[in-house]
Design a protein around this nucleic acid. Structure first.
Lengths: 121, 121
DNA sequence: CCGCGTGGTTTCCAACCGGAAACCGGCTAC
DNA sequence: GTAGCCGGTTTCCGGTTGGAAACCACGCGG
């Protein structure tokens, strides 16, 4: 069920240092969208978000958890096996979030051009 | 053409200290949505966003301008007459933004409940 | 001339954000 | 036993955010 997570998702999703759309903090929206395909493990999430530090990831995940969008599940195995998953509430957010992010992707050039032009003038 | 701006819009839109959805900065999304009904003047915008200071409003407006979402128009009259208006790019954002904010409004209780529960535990 | 409204700017400052790096306990594989 | 992986935590620190308050130039009304 968990579809493989493409490692180049970072480029596709655009880091929120550039994208003005945010959920919670810098990484929130990207994390939610990374969880769309099914539960993910901590280290698995770090791959597509290759700029993220462990601290930033835990912080963002805790915040999403606090808002009831993500659940944290500790596996029963001996070695640490922690997965993060969208709650029903989190899943209900995916559609409108993806739409807004699709808008951003569609108008990415215009956003960057406007910004570049404004930074020169 | 500019429909009157309801003064209690602030409560309806939820300040982004609580709402995790943001565009640019704290006030960005609310400003964009305040401009949906037509061009607005600076002091007119301060009414529905009654928590905002002049500095915060100018900062947010400048950022939206920089991203090409909002245009600033100085009237030809003698007294200062400045209006802010959504650009075509800004207007194209309204629909997906409203959808995401509608999601937030719809699940507002769940978000607050989850947060409250997490803050106690 | 005085004061008011408009549309800001400036200064100051506290809080928050977010990265780097070091550390850590539990488990496993060698 | 010891090296390594997993899933973090802790500390430190610089940069950004955002509010409060003061100030300001301009035009207008009286």
């Amino acid at each position: 069920m968990p579809t493989p997570l493409p490692p180049d998702l970072f480029d596709e999703l655009c880091p929120s240092t550039l994208n003005p759309v945010r959920v919670g903090d810098k990484w929130g929206a990207m994390i939610v969208r990374c969880l769309e395909g099914g539960p993910r493990r901590f280290s698995e999430l770090r791959v597509p978000l290759h700029g993220i530090t462990a601290k930033s990831l835990t912080t963002s995940l805790r915040r999403l958890q606090r808002d009831g969008l993500v659940s944290r599940n500790v596996g029963a195995g001996r070695s640490p096996q922690v997965t993060y998953e969208l709650t029903p509430l989190g899943r209900s957010m995916i559609e409108p979030l993806n739409d807004l992010c699709a808008w951003a992707a569609e108008h990415w050039d215009e956003l960057l051009d406007a910004r570049e032009a404004a930074d020169l003038g």
